[in-house]
Design a protein around this nucleic acid. Structure first.
Length: 261
DNA sequence: AAGTCAGTCAACCGCGAAGCG
DNA sequence: CCGCTTCGCGGTTGACTGACT
């Protein structure tokens, strides 16, 4: 069976939106709220398909859209997030309030992508000339011994002893100290490994959305990560490398674990 | 002034995921 | 569990604009 079209194409407008169409859509969403995109053309009288209405609202008409050029700070953040996430534009946009995935995608393709490509070619050339050796790959050990740290995250701990966990950190769903991490029950969000100074984290078996859930634990990790971490993404793994000064803000391992609970 | 080209960005399209009965 | 509908995402297209010849 073939895919059903998103809507009947006959009689629908295409191309640029007019001011009148914008007003009809804005008024409708203001009155009825977002969602049920497919019913909007039918109920509002717009001769546009639901997908087109959704796109127009999210990328242009939404009241919280941020207008104006990308700032140097946003520019820098986009580059680092792209380094981590690749072309996950919606995830990147989620870290830039008021910016849309379409806007960031266009910005990347027209500006940053070229810059990044140029930098990479330059680096490749330098290395080919023998002027510079590639940096050693960061390697964070992941051991098989793991303990459920929170209800959503498996802590794969290479150096911490189970007794080091804060009181109550394991929660009611804990499998107990030192339990193996290989059961499906404990794989629901991913694994976390850290070294003794907590400035290198390796997250594995983790989807994009779960990664953001992790970053948003208690808020503290989000800000620190946003501002300071160097991160690399490889398949479903995230390698986070925090500078020492960031880690001093977190205090010791127990303080860090408290962020996750 | 007219034509060409490159850059930008809004919008479209197809696909996979999620939701639901 | 299955099939269908709806939503959301990322890649791509094409209209528009300004610079240049």
């Amino acid at each position: 069976m073939g895919r059903s079209p998103c809507c009947k194409k006959e009689g629908l407008n295409k191309g640029a939106w007019t001011a009148v169409e914008d007003k009809i859509l804005s008024d409708y969403i203001t009155a009825h709220g977002e969602g049920r995109w497919r019913s909007i053309p039918r109920e509002s009288g717009l001769k546009r398909c639901g997908k087109s209405c959704r796109l127009r609202w999210l990328n242009y008409l939404r009241p919280d859209i941020k207008r104006g050029n990308i700032t140097p700070e946003e520019d820098d953040l986009i580059i680092r997030l792209h380094n981590l996430l690749g072309n996950r534009w919606s995830l990147i946009a989620g870290r830039l309030p008021g910016r849309t995935d379409n806007e960031i995608k266009n910005y990347w393709n027209t500006t940053l992508g070229k810059k990044a490509k140029g930098d990479k070619e330059e680096e490749t050339k330098r290395r080919a000339d023998g002027a510079e050796k590639p940096p050693p790959r960061t390697n964070v050990a992941v051991r098989t011994k793991a303990t459920r740290c929170t209800r959503k995250l498996v802590l794969v701990d290479s150096e911490l002893e189970p007794a080091a966990y804060p009181s109550g950190a394991l929660g009611s769903e804990s499998q107990g100290k030192g339990s193996p991490s290989t059961t499906s029950e404990t794989m629901d969000l991913g694994k976390l490994a850290m070294n003794s100074s907590i400035n290198k984290l390796l997250l594995t078996d983790m989807t994009d959305s779960d990664f953001w859930k992790f970053c948003q634990f208690e808020g503290g990790l989000t800000e620190e990560w946003n501002g300071n971490a160097n991160a690399n993404r490889d398949e479903n793994s995230y390698n986070l490398d925090f500078p020492e000064e960031t880690m001093t803000n977190w205090g010791d391992q127990n303080d860090f674990l408290q962020y996750l609970i």
